[in-house]
Amino acid sequence: MENLSAKYGKTLNLDKLTSYCPGCGHGIVTRLVAEAIESLGIMSRTISIVGIGCGGFSHHYMDIDAIEATHGRSPSFAIGYKLARPDNIVFTYAGDGDTCAIGLGDLMHAANKGMPITTIMVNNTVFGMTGGQMSPTTLEGQVTTTTTKGRAVPHQGYPLLVPEMMRAMPGVKYLARESVATPKDVRKAKKSIRKAFECQVKGLGYAFVEVIVPCPTGLKMNVKDSYARCGNEMTDYFKPQVFKDETEQSDVA
């Protein structure tokens, strides 16, 4: 297969064939992150801190320093890193399980601290790597290997709306939810991800982008149907939108 990564610049590096399953949304998000880093010219000072789960693979396809953190703790790792080296650009990249199940506390406190850090949360409504278990963002009624009759709200609650929880935090300067369901959505996602990095480059504060993606393997669906679900049921509940954009402020010196 032709290796297209060079077309996207130096940051993206697909010398290793990706470990992502066919149709996985991570591939698109990883590429968008690499493009944002490339376009901002920050590759040599950017550090990727990834979580546990399929999102942890993302750094393998970027020629930047990377830290594979403990499960859910990448926002806290990022706080420590950014404090010690404020001139580096630090972003965390993880799925919904890592980010808002085991790591919700770390995430919310990192966001609330408002340090210039960027977080990309890739939400596919399921624990992918361990084989399709319920995550906090699993939709009501969604069948997973641990909710065989569908997620039941009375005991398992409603799917977690993470950016909505951050909305009131003044330290969060860029906050958006995007999806990769259609080429048009991908273009919007690209813009948001770039802004989330720009926000940090300008030193403004915390930036968070949730990206709604399909997981054909975890959902046991073919690729086409999984994208249709992404554009319908998933984004009906997780509505793509820019919640907050304060990136047009002048640079914080």
Partner: peptide, 15 residues
């Protein structure tokens, strides 16, 4: 928990 994770993140810098 967050203390030790931030410590690990900062330790990655060599400082």
């Amino acid at each position: 928990l967050a203390v030790s994770s931030a410590l690990a993140g900062a330790a990655c810098t060599g400082k």
